[in-house]
Amino acid sequence: SQTQRTQDENEARRIAEEWKRRGYDVEVRNRNGHWEVTWD
């Protein structure tokens, strides 16, 4: 799996939607004030 971090929730949601469209299983988490998008 791969993880991308961002400070911006909207960006995190956009990234998550992009990977979901490509057929990946995606998880979005808030950790210590930043957002992590993990896909595999």
Results as ranks from 00 to 15, higher is better:
Ser1Gln: 11
Ser1Lys: 14
Ser1Phe: 14
Ser1Thr: 12
Ser1Glu: 10
Gln2Tyr: 08
Gln2Pro: 08
Gln2Leu: 10
Gln2Asn: 14
Gln2Asp: 07
Thr3Val: 13
Thr3His: 09
Thr3Leu: 10
Gln4Pro: 04
Thr6Glu: 06
Gln7Asp: 12
Gln7Leu: 13
Gln7Ser: 12
Gln7Arg: 12
Asp8Met: 05
Asp8Gly: 06
Glu9Pro: 06
Asn10Leu: 12
Asn10Thr: 12
Glu11Val: 07
Glu11Leu: 08
Glu11Tyr: 05
Glu11Pro: 00
Glu11Trp: 06
Ala12Leu: 03
Ala12Asp: 00
Ala12Tyr: 01
Arg13Val: 07
Arg13Asp: 02
Arg14Tyr: 05
Ile15Pro: 00
Ala16Ser: 04
Ala16Lys: 06
Glu18Gly: 05
Glu18Cys: 15
Glu18Lys: 08
Glu18Asp: 11
Trp19Asp: 03
Trp19Arg: 08
Trp19Met: 15
Lys20Met: 12
Lys20Gly: 08
Lys20Asn: 09
Arg21Met: 10
Arg21Trp: 04
Arg21Thr: 12
Arg21Cys: 15
Arg22Gly: 06
Arg22Glu: 10
Gly23Lys: 00
Gly23Tyr: 02
Gly23Ile: 00
Tyr24Ile: 06
Asp25Met: 10
Val26Pro: 04
Val26Gly: 01
Val26Glu: 00
Glu27Val: 14
Glu27Thr: 13
Glu27Ser: 11
Glu27Met: 09
Val28Glu: 01
Arg29Cys: 10
Arg29His: 13
Arg29Ala: 10
Arg29Asn: 09
Arg29Glu: 07
Arg29Lys: 11
Arg29Tyr: 08
Asn30Met: 14
Arg31Met: 13
Arg31His: 13
Asn32Phe: 07
Asn32Tyr: 06
Asn32Leu: 07
Asn32Ala: 08
Asn32His: 07
Gly33Met: 03
Gly33Phe: 02
His34Gly: 09
His34Ser: 11
His34Glu: 13
His34Val: 15
Trp35Leu: 01
Trp35Val: 01
Trp35Lys: 00
Trp35Arg: 00
Trp35Asn: 00
Glu36Arg: 01
Glu36Asn: 02
Glu36Asp: 04
Val37Pro: 01
Val37His: 00
Thr38Arg: 10
Thr38Pro: 01
Asp40Val: 15
Asp40Asn: 14
Asp40Glu: 14
Asp40Ala: 14
